[in-house]
Simulated scan of single mutants.
Amino acid sequence: MTLAFPNPSRSFDETRNAVRFMGHDGMFQIRFFVEVGVLTKSHVAKREAGALEAKCLSAFDELRTSIYDVAREAYSHDRRDSYTLTRRGFLLGGSLC
Results as ranks from 00 to 15, higher is better:
residue 33 F to Q: 08
residue 46 K to S: 10
residue 25 D to G: 02
residue 47 R to A: 13
residue 73 E to D: 13
residue 4 A to G: 05
residue 4 A to R: 10
residue 3 L to Q: 13
residue 96 L to K: 05
residue 91 L to E: 15
residue 9 S to P: 01
residue 20 R to V: 15
residue 47 R to D: 02
residue 66 S to V: 02
residue 35 E to K: 06
residue 97 C to W: 03
residue 38 V to T: 02
residue 79 R to M: 12
residue 52 L to N: 10
residue 46 K to M: 09
residue 40 T to P: 01
residue 24 H to A: 15
residue 49 A to V: 12
residue 83 Y to Q: 13
residue 37 G to E: 15
residue 79 R to F: 00
residue 88 R to S: 11
residue 70 V to R: 10
residue 82 S to G: 09
residue 93 G to S: 08
residue 53 E to G: 01
residue 29 Q to G: 04
residue 27 M to K: 06
residue 32 F to S: 08
residue 84 T to D: 01
residue 90 F to V: 02
residue 46 K to I: 07
residue 14 E to K: 02
residue 14 E to H: 00
residue 51 A to V: 09
residue 42 S to F: 01
residue 96 L to F: 06
residue 66 S to G: 14
residue 65 T to E: 15
residue 49 A to C: 04
residue 87 R to Q: 12
residue 79 R to Y: 09
residue 18 A to K: 03
residue 80 R to F: 03
residue 93 G to C: 02
residue 31 R to G: 01
residue 43 H to K: 10
residue 25 D to H: 09
residue 71 A to I: 05
residue 54 A to L: 14
residue 5 F to V: 13
residue 55 K to T: 15
residue 34 V to Y: 05
residue 69 D to P: 00
residue 13 D to M: 00
residue 18 A to F: 06
residue 88 R to H: 09
residue 80 R to I: 03
residue 12 F to R: 05
residue 30 I to D: 07
residue 51 A to D: 09
residue 50 G to C: 04
residue 24 H to D: 10
residue 10 R to D: 13
residue 36 V to I: 07
residue 68 Y to G: 03
residue 62 E to I: 14
residue 47 R to W: 07
residue 34 V to E: 00
residue 13 D to K: 01
residue 37 G to I: 00
residue 37 G to F: 04
residue 39 L to Y: 10
residue 32 F to L: 02
residue 21 F to A: 12
residue 33 F to H: 11
residue 68 Y to D: 11
residue 18 A to D: 04
residue 57 L to I: 14
residue 95 S to A: 05
residue 47 R to H: 07
residue 26 G to V: 07
residue 77 H to M: 11
residue 86 T to G: 03
residue 77 H to T: 09
residue 17 N to P: 00
residue 68 Y to E: 15
residue 8 P to E: 13
residue 45 A to K: 08
residue 79 R to I: 08
residue 79 R to P: 00
residue 72 R to G: 12
residue 72 R to T: 10
residue 42 S to H: 07
residue 19 V to G: 03
residue 8 P to I: 04
residue 38 V to G: 04
residue 45 A to D: 10
residue 36 V to C: 08
residue 89 G to R: 05
residue 8 P to F: 13
residue 17 N to S: 09
residue 53 E to Y: 12
residue 35 E to G: 05
residue 67 I to L: 12
residue 66 S to R: 12
residue 53 E to H: 10
residue 26 G to D: 12
residue 97 C to V: 07
residue 57 L to T: 12
residue 95 S to Y: 06
residue 24 H to V: 13
residue 34 V to P: 00
